[in-house]
Amino acid sequence: MAKVTVKNVFKLPDGKHSVGPNLNLVVRGNSRTYVFRYSVDGKRKEKSLGSAEKISISQAREQAEKFRVGLSEGHAPKTNKEVLVENVRKEEAPTFEAYALKTIDKIASVRMWKNAKHKAQWFSTVKTYALPVLGKKKLADIKKQDILEVLNPIWLTKNETASRVRGRLENIFSYAVSDGLMEFNPALWRGNLDRELPPPGKVQKTEHHEAMSLEELQGKIDCFYPAINRTRQVILFTILTASRVGESVPAKWDEIDWDNKVWSVPAERRKDGKPYPHRVPLSTQAVELLESIERTGEYIFSIKDTLGSRYSLAVLLKRMTGSQATMHGFRSTFRDWAAENGVPDIVAEKCLMHSTGSAVVQAYQRSDLLEQRREVMQRWADAVFAKFAG
């Protein structure tokens, strides 16, 4: 390996030629490049300093010396140009607030969320928990410690919410990494935050929706029947169809097939994401309830075509029954009754609009078992009214 001098720098043959400690001149044909060689964690690396036509030997040696000093202090080698570009990039880089709000819009568009509440929930959790800590920070400056500052105050006390916040931050930062605005996703769980925070499964306490037993429901049925107002009507209809309030409250008259006694829940209201309507067989009691309701618009449970809030039903239900029962809890009441009365699991699950079996099973089990479910829903309605004195 020949020693490089001012006199021979442009005369040396192809190969590597020593310029100084860790510094070589690499010659390949007409190309002559200064290269700094170093090791990090036992791995050998090289850093190009530029062409011999653009920088002198003394400049290359000076830069190599700066790199050696930087390495001794734990800093990766960066050329003056790279430092300049990095500084400019930091100046132009968006803050977390600006980037996150724009990216949530993009995520909503890409995922084609049908329910506007999903997007609203992302905005709400990010604004509430992340923006106070990360809002004004440049993306490239956000590190794992910043994410921990967001999550630590709520990880043990609001773990379900904290887990959602972490997942949403991970999604946002994954876009930033793809856009070249960050080198690493600081909200990753595996191999990152899992070394600092307890596993969600060991922190979360499962809270089931408060559900009445069938006997309690039978004793409270006179709270809903006769169904003389919209609140009683929608609660009773939801119970008789074992549906979710997100499916029952927005129900429309044109979804009812009177001849076949079927209510078709449109695909956009299906929580399981299936691209076709879910057929609900209507019991005699459910049909009688619908026939008793005056039509004032396209929505069944509305007054002058204005829907009430489905969330207010929880408060009204507790007030009417004097219990802590929830609307969703009636689905648990139905499922318990079905299990205790010999209803096959697959039929009971289809009554609740749950997916059944593995992907393979679902591929072959395409029937919605309507007629089997019709019998079950009639038996359920009869059980609900079994102790009603009238």
Rank of each mutant, 00 (worst) to 15 (best):
F334R: 10
S18E: 04
T95A: 11
Q145K: 12
R230V: 01
V262W: 10
V6A: 15
L316N: 15
P198G: 06
L101K: 11
P13G: 10
R331K: 06
K271C: 07
R279I: 09
P226E: 07
Y34P: 03
S213F: 02
V347G: 10
T79W: 00
P250E: 05
A130G: 05
V280D: 03
V85Y: 09
R331V: 08
A359F: 00
G329H: 07
K78Q: 15
K158D: 02
E291C: 12
R195C: 13
W113M: 09
V343F: 05
D305G: 01
F330K: 01
N229R: 06
Q233N: 03
E294N: 03
A64K: 02
E170I: 02
N22R: 12
L139H: 00
A348M: 12
I239W: 08
S178K: 13
R232P: 00
E62H: 14
A386P: 14
G201F: 00
L307K: 06
R331G: 07
D14R: 08
K304W: 02
I221Y: 03
G50E: 03
S355Y: 01
Y299T: 05
N80L: 14
L148F: 02
G308H: 12
N229K: 05
E268I: 07
K318F: 02
S312Q: 13
T125W: 00
S248W: 00
K144A: 11
L282E: 04
G322Y: 05
E340N: 14
L193K: 01
L214M: 15
D41W: 01
A338D: 08
Y99C: 09
E207W: 00
K90L: 14
W258C: 05
T284K: 15
G390T: 03
L134T: 07
E62N: 12
A383K: 08
R374H: 02
V40F: 08
E160L: 12
F301D: 04
R295V: 08
D368N: 11
E73R: 15
D146W: 01
A348Y: 09
T79V: 12
H354A: 07
K78E: 15
D105I: 07
S332W: 01
E91L: 15
R168T: 11
F330W: 02
H278I: 01
V4N: 03
L84T: 09
A348F: 09
L370Y: 10
F224K: 10
R279G: 05
L23S: 07
M1T: 06
V203T: 14
R230H: 04
Q285W: 04
A76M: 13
I154C: 05
L188F: 02
L71E: 11
D14M: 08
N260T: 09
L151Y: 03
W122M: 04
W380M: 08
W258H: 04
Q121H: 10
R111N: 14
E349K: 04
F237A: 06
I154R: 11
A60S: 05
G15Y: 10
A211L: 10
R379T: 07
N115Y: 04
E86I: 05
V177Q: 08
L240W: 00
T296Q: 13
T5L: 14
V150L: 04
M182N: 06
G70K: 03
N260E: 13
V361M: 13
V9P: 00
E294A: 05
S248I: 09
R32K: 09
I256Q: 00
H278T: 01
E183N: 14
V126T: 15
A386D: 13
T128R: 15
A187R: 00
A100E: 08
L134Q: 09
R44N: 10
T326I: 13
